[in-house]
Amino acid sequence: MTKVLDPSLLPQASLWSRSWLSHRRKRQCVPWLYVAPATLLFTALMLFPMVTVLRYSLMDGAIAKKDSSFVGIRNYLEVVADPIFWQAAAQTLYFTVVSVIFHLVIGLAFAQLLNSDRVDPAIRGVLRVLFILPWLYTAVIIAIIWRLLLDPNGVVNSVLMTLHIIDFKVEWFSSPGTALQAVTFANIWAGYPLYMVSLLAALQGISKELYEAAELDGANSIQSFVHITVPQLMPVIVSIALLDFIWTLQVFPLVWMTTGGGPIHATEMLSTYTYKLAFSSYKFSLASASAVLILAMSMSVTLVYIKYQKAR
């Protein structure tokens, strides 16, 4: 310690101090360097487009006019005054809620089947492959498959007519009365495997001792399911249902490729409504306002998800 205070050693001490400071600074920079790539990507791919869309939504004739100007919330007022927007919002909600419910029910049923010891392991292996197939297809392929199946001259009508369930060719995607249900059905078919895989993993994590204890207490299979399986799966169910709700809210390709939002707006979703505003009507400001409103809806569900995750 005395040596450090020796004046003859001061220059070296100062040098050491500078080097130490430099080293300290470097160490301070390290975490920033680690997060820099992600921050850059987030800024370029998420923040910049979001801010741009927000800016467009507050302007008049964005993109379409070279001299567009700030108009405040006028575009938002115009969008919410359009009855088609509210029709699209209601149909999007229906499409999303029904899809999420059926994804969960079908996913859970198949997961239970695949987790059951009563089914032969070889059959379970085959079923596992078959059940997961819809997940492997892209939205375009799914749309083509269902367009072919639900064509008035397609397989579904043929089977239903052979079984005398219907006596005329139902125009599933083409009739205003059935189009929304048909699109929702196709989306349910496409989306349940995510639930199935997640819930199967969760089911396999439930201790068998719990079921054995319940059996000793005289619980039947329904009681075991309600009081053991469901509570044990609940964290996974809530997480996945919230994520599915957010994703389904934004579904575009499947609806666009099957019905284009028709007939007569019968399958108009907020996504197709926004797309048409932008690329058919060239009303990019209104499309941006509509997109921001969809973002706000998705954000509100995202906040619930984040709150739930934190609570866990």
Partner: peptide
């Protein structure tokens, strides 16, 4: 006389 499925065709 028109092939069915007009609105989605």
């Amino acid at each position: 006389v028109i092939s069915p499925g007009i609105f989605a065709k």
